[in-house]
Design a protein around this nucleic acid. Structure first.
Lengths: 131, 131
DNA sequence: AATTTGTTATACTAGTTATATAACAAATAT
DNA sequence: ATATTTGTTATATAACTAGTATAACAAATT
């Protein structure tokens, strides 16, 4: 699989797994309906404990990104299934705020930050503003 | 002071303090050269322990945003002093990435995310793209 | 029938978060 | 000069989180 763990990172392992699966879906590496590897196999793959991966999967389920079917497996939900609520939009804005504020205080310009946003979109293989 | 703590939040108190000070500086509530309140007074103000605020101040110092002078106080450094390094720009991009990716996977459009960015800039009273 | 699956439970270590108190020595205020 | 305020350092404690380790269960799959 495409997940790469940084053991030294201040980001918890289960959070790294969650993020990289989300980025994998955003990038198109995995599509809706695809099944995630079992918690045991992914854990063995990454060299981490089963419960660490399990925690990540349940975080993805709480975010509405996957559906876990007990004793069967985890499936990536479709974009239609996961309705984007106003609360989720607000949460994203709430997450963006401190990152942008820190950038500005450190001396970044609006242009620099917007340029970084385009790099992120490009990284996720999403067509940027000028389609 | 302008800081408002949410005790129930999953964001640690010291992190909430750090973020809100950064946002306060970005917003212009505090300028370079201004002195932050003493750790004891701010702690009393917020109803939290001295060490919690102290941790926040040292986080701000590590980010290069303030300068702590032992037995005197903490001063907000100027934008010239805090040089924006390439590593810092990369860090900001690294922070933006998971937020954007999650938004996309949840079904947000590029336009929606860029609109939220404008809202964040507006919230920080920074003139947006169309100056 | 055997294997794989997510679930649940228990136990443990290490680290983080937050509080509480106290003392120190330098800086500041009176 | 004296008193107060300052960040610093130290110790202790409680609650929680992160991660690992094992084990057993029952349903799903092979």
């Amino acid at each position: 699989m495409f997940i790469q763990i940084e053991p030294q990172s201040d980001v918890p392992i289960y959070e790294q797994v969650t993020r990289q699966i989300i980025e994998g879906i955003a990038r198109g590496d995995m599509k809706q309906g695809d099944t995630l590897p079992s918690v045991r196999s992914l854990a063995a793959d990454l060299g981490v404990n089963m419960h660490t991966v399990n925690k990540s999967y349940h975080e993805l389920e709480a975010k509405g990104i996957i559906a876990i079917r007990a004793k069967s497996g985890a499936i990536i939900r479709s974009t239609e299934e996961r309705a984007l609520t106003h609360a989720q939009l607000q949460q994203i804005e709430k997450n963006l705020k401190p990152v942008v504020a820190e950038g500005m205080v450190l001396g970044a310009t609006v242009e620099q930050i917007e340029h970084m946003m385009k790099k992120v979109f490009a990284d996720l293989q999403i067509p940027a503003e000028g389609v």
